[in-house]
Amino acid sequence: MTQTEIIARLQSIFDDVFLDPPTLHPALTAKEVDEWDSLLHISLLLAVEKEFAIRFRVGEVEATSNIGEFADLIEVRSTEK
């Protein structure tokens, strides 16, 4: 999967989870989105883990700084199985 493909799949998850979904692009950060708090963050991670059938390791999502890096992490976790 390319980063673009992953971001497209992420977009549909975000559309379900956010009241007012942001339009995703690689440089987007959580800070830029008002609604993106920790309740939403947990829900988002659960939805992403379900959608991609992966499990993130402790601390690594926090270490990503924007949507592009987050998509790359999903790619790494998806291909390691």
């Binding site: 379900d16 989870v17 956010f18 009241l19 309740l39 939403l40 947990i42 829900s43 659960l46 939805a47 379900k50």
Partner: peptide, 17 residues
């Protein structure tokens, strides 16, 4: 499940908004 309840909570907020 958490994601179910979260989704419902979000719909409630949307309705109020």
């Amino acid at each position: 499940e958490f994601d179910e309840l979260f989704f419902l909570s979000m719909l409630r907020k949307r309705a109020l908004e």
